[in-house]
Simulated assay, not measured.
Amino acid sequence: MGHSFFAHYQKLVDDQVLKPDPAQADIVRQFDELAQKLQHHQSQKPNFFQRILGQDHAEDAPQGLYIWGDVGRGKTMLMDLFFNHIEVEKKRRVHFHEFMAEVHEGIAAFRKSERGKENGRRDPIPYVTAPIIEKVKLLCFDEFHVNDITDAMLLSRLFGQLFEAGLVVVATSNVPPEGLYKNGLNRQLFVPFIELLQQKTKVLRLDVDHDYRREKLEEQPIYFFGHDDKAQAGLDRVWNNLTGGQTGERENIDLQGRTFSVPQQALGVMRIGFKQLCEAPLGSRDYLRLSHHYHTFIIDEIPYLDRARSDAAKRFILLVDTLYDRGCKLSASFAAPLDELSGDDQTAFEFQRTLSRLVEMRSLEYLGAPLNDVEETEENSVDV
C-alpha cells in the first residue's frame, strides 16, 4: 500500500467526498491497525517444517473486526473502502446470506456425492470449508444476521474450522454479537458461536447520531420525469450527493455463473440504464444478488412500458419487488408520470402493486428504514 488506510480515509474527508465524523474516524483507526497486522502476517512465510505439516502461521492470525450500529451510519461504506484499499492476497467480500446459501449448496452437493453416500454420518463441514480456506484469508461480511435455525446450529462448527485455519473475518451488522439469533429456538446451542465470534473479532459499535444515507436522499428529489437534460442533471445531483462526487468505477458481478457489468458504482451506490437492467435476461435471483451488493440503485431512462416492452415491464416489476422487499433505495428518471407509465394490458394488474411501491419508496419513512434479509426461493428465482 502506498499510504495507510487512515490517510486514504482522511483524503476522502479533505476532498469532501465524506463528511468528517469522529466516530467513523475511530473505526477507521481500527481498520488501519488491522491492515498493518494483516500485511505483517501475510509477509511471514512458513518454514520448511511448517510447510511439511501444512501450517501457515494460522495461530498468529490477527483478530478481525465486528462492527455494529444503526442503519445508514456508514458501516458498509467503511468496510468496502477498507476491502478495496488493502493489498491482501486471497480476500473476499460477500453478503452473509449469500455466503450461507453457498455453504448449504456445498453441503447438499457433498451428500449427493459418492463420498457423502458412502457414510451418511460423515461430516460435510470439512468438505465445505476446504475450498474457502484455500482461496480466502480475509473474509468481509455485510449484514451479518442470523434468524434461521439451520444456520444457527451450523455456524459454530463452520467458523470453528475457518478460524482454526487462520481466516480473518470482518463483519458489519445492525446488532451486537449477543443480539444475533435473539429468542431463536434452542438458542443455548448457538451461544458457543457468539463466544467464538467475540474471541476472534474485536467488537466495535459505530455510534453515529446521523443517518447519512437518509439525509442525503431527503435533501433533494429522487424521481425525475422526462428523458431530458433536466432529468439527467437531477440524477447527477443524486449521484454526487451520495458518493461525494466520485466518478465511480465499473464492477463485474457474478450472477449464477454469468458476468454482469455494472457501468458505474461507488460507496454502495450503482448507476445503470434501464435497458441494461431490464431488457437483459435477468430474473429475481439476479436482482436479489445485485441488491446484496448495492444499497441504492440509480436508474436512467425508464421508458413508457407499452405492450412492445412487455418482457422488460415484467422484469421491472420483479426488480421493484426485490428492491422494495430488501429495503434498497431507488432514484430514477421516468418517461412519464408514475400513473401513466404502463400501457400494457398484460401487466396492468401487477403494475398497480409496482406503482404503489414506487410511491412508498420515495417516502421519508421508507428512506429511513433499514435493509431487510430476503431469502432466495424457487418462487422468486424464475427468470423472464
Rank of each mutant, 00 (worst) to 15 (best):
R315L: 11
S284W: 10
A35I: 05
F144S: 04
E87P: 05
E219N: 12
L34K: 04
E251P: 03
D80M: 06
D56M: 07
Q198E: 14
K216P: 08
G283N: 07
D123N: 15
F334Q: 12
A23G: 12
Q39C: 10
F351A: 07
P192Y: 02
G74C: 04
M77T: 02
K37H: 12
D311E: 14
V71M: 09
T243W: 00
Q50T: 03
R73Q: 10
E376N: 15
S4N: 11
D339R: 14
E195Q: 14
R315K: 09
Y287A: 06
E143R: 06
L305P: 01
K19P: 06
E33K: 13
Q55M: 08
A312N: 05
T172H: 02
S356H: 14
L267N: 04
H104P: 03
P263D: 06
G120S: 11
Y366W: 15
R357T: 02
R237Q: 15
E143G: 01
D123A: 11
P370H: 11
K202D: 10
I299H: 07
G179F: 05
R115S: 06
D344F: 10
R93D: 01
F82P: 00
A58L: 02
M361A: 14
K117V: 01
L206E: 06
K137T: 06
L155Q: 03
G72M: 02
T150R: 15
Q232M: 11
P281L: 11
V203R: 05
I299A: 05
E89R: 15
F334M: 15
R353C: 12
A165D: 04
N241C: 13
E98H: 15
D32H: 09
L154W: 05
A312H: 06
S113F: 00
D123M: 08
H227P: 06
M77I: 04
P192E: 09
G184C: 03
I107F: 05
A108I: 04
R289H: 14
V238E: 10
L158P: 00
L277G: 00
K45Y: 15
G234L: 07
E105W: 07
G54R: 09
K112N: 12
S356I: 07
A7K: 08
R357C: 12
N119H: 01
E379S: 13
R309V: 07
Y287W: 04
N252D: 15
V17R: 09
F31Y: 15
P177S: 11
S156C: 13
K329F: 13
A61K: 00
E379T: 13
